[in-house]
Amino acid sequence: CFKERTRSLLREWYLQDPYPNPSKKRELAQATGLTPTQVGNWFKNRRQRDR
């Protein structure tokens, strides 16, 4: 489970760009304390949910 602060940050970035490039994923990973893989998976799952 991600912290609420982490989730809200991911949601904000998702609204700006649902397909972040690898450098954006690394930047988000540093900002949230997650790994780039976790960030990528979150975006993938979120895109799937929005279908």
Score class of each variant (00 low, 15 high):
E4H: 10
T35Y: 02
Y14V: 01
P36V: 09
P22A: 12
L34M: 11
P22C: 08
W42M: 00
D17K: 04
N45L: 09
N45D: 11
L10I: 01
R7K: 15
Q48Y: 13
T37W: 07
Q16F: 12
R49V: 11
D50A: 05
L15K: 09
C1Y: 15
T35W: 02
W13C: 12
P20M: 04
Q16Y: 08
L15T: 11
N41K: 15
K25P: 02
R49K: 14
K44G: 04
V39H: 00
E4M: 11
E4K: 11
V39G: 03
Q38M: 05
R49L: 08
A31M: 12
Q48N: 11
A29Q: 01
R5T: 11
R46C: 05
S23M: 09
N41G: 06
N45T: 10
L34C: 02
E27C: 02
A29E: 01
Q48C: 11
S8V: 13
S8M: 14
S23A: 14
F43N: 05
E4P: 12
K24H: 10
N41S: 10
P20Y: 04
K24V: 12
D50I: 03
T37R: 14
T37S: 11
S8E: 15
Q30R: 08
N41Q: 07
C1V: 07
Y19Q: 07
Q30I: 15
L9S: 03
Y19V: 06
R5S: 15
W42P: 00
K3M: 05
P20I: 08
E12R: 05
K3D: 13
R46G: 00
Q38D: 00
R7I: 14
R46Q: 13
W13M: 14
N41M: 09
T32F: 01
Q16W: 08
G40T: 11
L28F: 13
L28Q: 01
T35R: 04
C1I: 15
G40D: 10
Y14S: 04
R49A: 10
L28D: 03
F2G: 13
R7C: 08
A31C: 09
F43Y: 04
L28H: 03
R5I: 07
A29V: 02
A31R: 09
Q16M: 15
S8A: 14
A29W: 04
F2L: 13
L15V: 10
R11S: 13
T32V: 10
L34S: 05
F43G: 00
R11D: 10
Q48K: 15
P20S: 00
R49Y: 13
Q30G: 11
P18R: 11
T35S: 13
Q30V: 11
Y14Q: 02
G33E: 01
K24N: 07
P18H: 13
P36T: 13
L9V: 13
P20Q: 02
S8H: 12
R26F: 10
S8Q: 15
T32I: 05
L28A: 00
G33Y: 00
W42F: 03
R7P: 04
K44W: 05
T37F: 04
P18E: 04
A31F: 03
Q30W: 12
F2I: 13
L10Q: 00
K24C: 07
K3G: 11
L10V: 00
L10C: 01
R5K: 07
K24F: 04
E27D: 10
K25T: 15
T6L: 11
K24A: 15
G33L: 02
S8Y: 13
S8P: 02
L9I: 12
W13L: 11
P20F: 03
Y19A: 08
R5N: 10
N45C: 07
Q48H: 13
R51A: 13
R49H: 08
N21W: 05
D17R: 01
N41C: 07
R26D: 04
L15I: 13
P36Y: 13
P36K: 13
R51H: 13
T37P: 07
R7W: 12
R11W: 13
R7G: 10
T35D: 04
Q16H: 11
G33T: 03
W13K: 07
G33K: 06
N21S: 14
N45G: 05
P20K: 00
R26S: 13
T32P: 03
S8K: 14
V39W: 02
S23W: 03
R26N: 15
K3I: 08
L15G: 07
T35L: 03
E27R: 05
W42Q: 02
D17A: 01
E4S: 12
K44Q: 14
W13T: 13
Y14F: 09
K44L: 07
W42R: 00
D17L: 04
W42T: 07
V39M: 00
F2M: 15
G40C: 12
Y14W: 04
A31T: 11
R47A: 07
Q38W: 03
T37M: 13
S23C: 11
V39I: 10
Q30E: 13
P18Y: 00
S23L: 08
G40H: 12
F43A: 00
T37K: 15
A31S: 11
N41L: 06
E4F: 10
R49E: 14
D17Y: 00
W13A: 14
Q38S: 04
Q38Y: 02
Q38A: 08
L15Y: 15
R11T: 15
R49P: 02
Q38F: 04
V39K: 00
F43W: 01
P20N: 01
R7E: 11
P22V: 14
R46E: 11
K25L: 13
R5H: 06
A29M: 00
K3T: 12
F2W: 06
Y19D: 08
E27L: 06
R5G: 12
P22F: 11
T32D: 00
A29C: 05
N21H: 11
L28T: 01
K3Q: 10
C1E: 08
L15C: 15
S8F: 10
R7Y: 14
L10K: 01
G33A: 04
W42E: 01
R5C: 08
S23T: 14
G33W: 00
R5W: 08
R11I: 14
Q38G: 03
A31V: 11
Q38P: 00
T32C: 13
T6K: 06
T35C: 04
F43H: 02
Y19E: 05
R7D: 10
T35H: 03
K44H: 08
N45F: 07
E4W: 04
S23K: 06
K44F: 07
F2R: 09
Y14L: 02
T32L: 07
R51K: 10
T35Q: 10
E12Q: 08
R11A: 12
R47H: 05
T35P: 01
W13Q: 14
Q16T: 10
T37D: 15
L15A: 15
G40E: 12
S23N: 10
K25S: 06
E27I: 06
Q38K: 01
L10F: 02
D17E: 10
Y14A: 01
R46M: 11
Y14H: 00
N21P: 14
L9F: 06
F43C: 03
Y14G: 02
K24Y: 04
F43T: 00
F43K: 01
S23Y: 03
R51T: 06
K24T: 12
K25W: 08
T6W: 07
T32K: 00
A29P: 01
Q16N: 12
K25V: 13
R7S: 14
Q30Y: 09
G40R: 14
R26C: 13
A31I: 11
R51N: 09
G40Q: 10
Q48T: 10
N45P: 00
F2E: 14
D17N: 05
T32R: 01
N21G: 13
R49G: 08
L28Y: 14
L34Y: 03
K24Q: 12
R46P: 05
G33R: 05
Y19H: 08
Q48M: 07
G40I: 10
S23Q: 13
A29L: 01
S8R: 14
F2D: 15
R51S: 15
G40V: 05
K44N: 14
N21K: 15
N21D: 15
N41E: 13
P20W: 00
Q16E: 09
W42I: 01
A29H: 03
P22D: 11
Q16R: 13
K25I: 14
D50G: 05
T37L: 10
R11L: 13
Y14T: 00
P22N: 10
V39Y: 01
E12D: 12
Q48E: 09
K44E: 12
R7A: 14
R47Y: 00
S23I: 08
K25H: 05
E12K: 09
R5E: 12
P36A: 10
Y19F: 12
D50W: 00
N21A: 11
W42G: 02
L34D: 03
R46T: 12
A31G: 04
R46S: 08
F2T: 12
R47P: 06
L34T: 03
E12C: 02
L9P: 04
K44D: 08
L28K: 04
P20C: 06
L9W: 05
W42K: 01
L34N: 01
Y19T: 09
L10H: 01
Q38C: 07
A29R: 00
R26E: 14
K24E: 08
N21E: 14
T32W: 02
V39R: 01
A29K: 02
N45E: 11
Q30L: 11
V39D: 01
Q38H: 02
L15M: 09
E27H: 07
T6E: 09
K3N: 15
E12Y: 12
Q48W: 12
L34E: 03
A29I: 01
P18M: 06
R7N: 15
E12I: 05
R47C: 03
D50M: 03
W42S: 00
W13S: 13
D50T: 05
N45I: 07
R5Y: 07
F43M: 03
D17P: 03
R7H: 15
F43I: 04
L15R: 15
R51M: 06
G40A: 11
F43P: 00
K25N: 08
A31Q: 13
F2A: 11
S8L: 14
Q48R: 15
T35M: 04
G33I: 01
F2C: 09
L9A: 07
W42D: 04
R46K: 15
P18A: 10
K24I: 13
L9N: 03
E12F: 07
S23D: 15
K44I: 05
T32H: 14
K44T: 08
E12V: 05
R5L: 09
R11F: 13
Y19I: 06
T35A: 01
G33C: 04
D17V: 01
V39N: 00
A31Y: 08
N45Q: 10
E27F: 09
E12P: 01
K24W: 01
D17C: 03
Q16A: 12
L34W: 05
R51G: 08
E4L: 05
K25E: 14
R49D: 13
P20V: 06
R47L: 04
T35I: 03
R47Q: 07
Q30T: 14
P36E: 14
